[in-house]
Design a protein around this nucleic acid. Structure first.
Lengths: 136, 136
DNA sequence: CGGCATCCCATGCGATACTG
DNA sequence: CAGTATCGCATGGGATGCCG
């Protein structure tokens, strides 16, 4: 006789999340983290709370629309809090939540990797291009 | 009298790469890493060399086109090698390069984070949705 | 089997203009 | 200053069909 019911075993089995599975909810989260604006925003906020305008300056090239959209997404997923101070003009501060902070080292590592290996990558591109030319 | 020429100082200054700068080449690399197919492919290849078809099975939902496109990109950037065995039918193996391996822990961390915090995120979404409803 | 070319639609995202 | 709404273009990416 089993010590757990079939339903219980299934419930436990469901806990085995795997982003390789297309229908797994983690795939969607993985896709979210794989968004450059999300990554840059989390990296930016790792320096402390920031206002909307400050973030736009920090993250060069981010349109106001993309930034708002990204911040809403992060807020919805519980990674960022949005605090409105109803002064005139309006003041809005964004800050990482506890959950958001757990993501910081991960995203920082991605940014760091880009900056550390850029030269190897550019060299590889030159090589690749050169060998492509040789073919034709 | 300076110990380094202006040109030398500038050459050194150029080494200060920062993905926050839109025109910085690292931004482009950061954007590349922020591609879910890139992330999933690197994660998949961390288990060892794989054939095109094997990768497609592993990475559920990846179309043949996207996979080829992603692999070409990784090959061009020196992260993956492509080995063709001219048998019939054709056999093509993909394998991480030494540079590619340095990226594995980073991408594995992203995948791991997704799988570890999915429940907190789903809970946050429920909360968010509930508070949105309360507003209207 | 692995890959390229073509077609084509859905959406991502910037630009602009307006509100609180 | 922060945010929403609208328009319109660019491109991401699937489906299909043909070659090595």
């Amino acid at each position: 006789m089993p010590t757990r019911s079939a339903a219980q075993r299934q419930a436990e089995a469901k806990v085995v999340y795997d982003a390789f599975v297309a229908t797994c909810p983690t795939r969607q989260v993985f896709a979210t983290l794989s968004d450059k604006w999300v990554g840059l925003t989390v990296n930016a906020l790792s320096g402390g709370p920031m206002r909307h305008g400050e973030l736009r300056k920090k993250i060069a090239g981010a349109s106001q629309k993309m930034l708002t959209q990204t911040l809403r997404l992060l807020e919805r997923d519980g990674l960022v809090t949005r605090t409105v101070t109803p002064t005139v003009p309006l003041r809005v501060d964004y800050e990482l939540t506890q959950l958001g902070w757990t993501l910081v080292p991960v995203m920082a590592a991605v940014k760091k990797w880009s900056e550390t290996h850029i030269q190897e990558i550019m060299a590889a591109r030159d090589d690749y291009e050169a060998s492509e030319l040789r073919k034709h």
